[in-house]
Amino acid sequence: MITAFSEGFFSPRRTNVTSLDASRSHVLVAEHDPWSETVVRRLDDLVHLPIGWDGYAARPVQFSTAYFTLSMLTQLKIPGCEVPQLVPGVNGDLQAEWHTESGSIELHVLAPNRVEAWYLDHDQQVKEVALTNDFTLVVGWLESLMGNGRAAEATAA
C-alpha cells in the first residue's frame, strides 16, 4: 500500500454525511486514562465548534490538526504533567498551553507538522522555535517547568 496524505483542500463538511451520524458518534480510548480522556474530550469539543464561534468568521479546529495534536501530546505526557489548556485559533489551528509560576510553554499547532513552540523559563528567558514532528526539545522544557513548579510548590508549603 502506498499512501500520501494532504490536508486543507477538503475540510469536513456537515452536509451530505453518510459515514457517521450523531447516534454513532463516540470517543475511543484504549484504556482508562484520565489525562488522555480529558485531552480527547477537549479536542472533540474544538472540532465541533460552529463556524463563527468567535462572533466573526472563525473556523472550528481542523480534524487533522486535532489528531496531530493528540499524537503530539502523547509524546509529551511526562509523569505528573498537567493536562495543557487547549485554546482554539480562528483559522482551524489551536494552542496547547502550560502556565505555572515558574514559566510557560505554548505550542501553536498551525497544521500537522507545523508547530511554533514558545517557552518562557523561570529566569524570564524566552525561547522560540519552529518544530515539525519531533518534540524531544519540548519534553526537556516541560520537565524543567514541572520540576521547577514542584520545587516552588514545596517551598511555598
Binding site: L20, V27, D44, Y67, M72
Partner: peptide
C-alpha cells in the same frame, strides 16, 4: 510524532465524533 522514549506498547486512541 516523537518526544518521550516509548516505554510500552503504542496505545492507539482517538475520536470519531466528527462528520466526515
Amino acid at each position: 510524532t516523537f518526544g518521550l522514549p516509548q516505554r510500552g506498547p503504542r496505545v492507539e486512541f482517538g475520536f470519531v465524533s466528527c462528520a466526515l
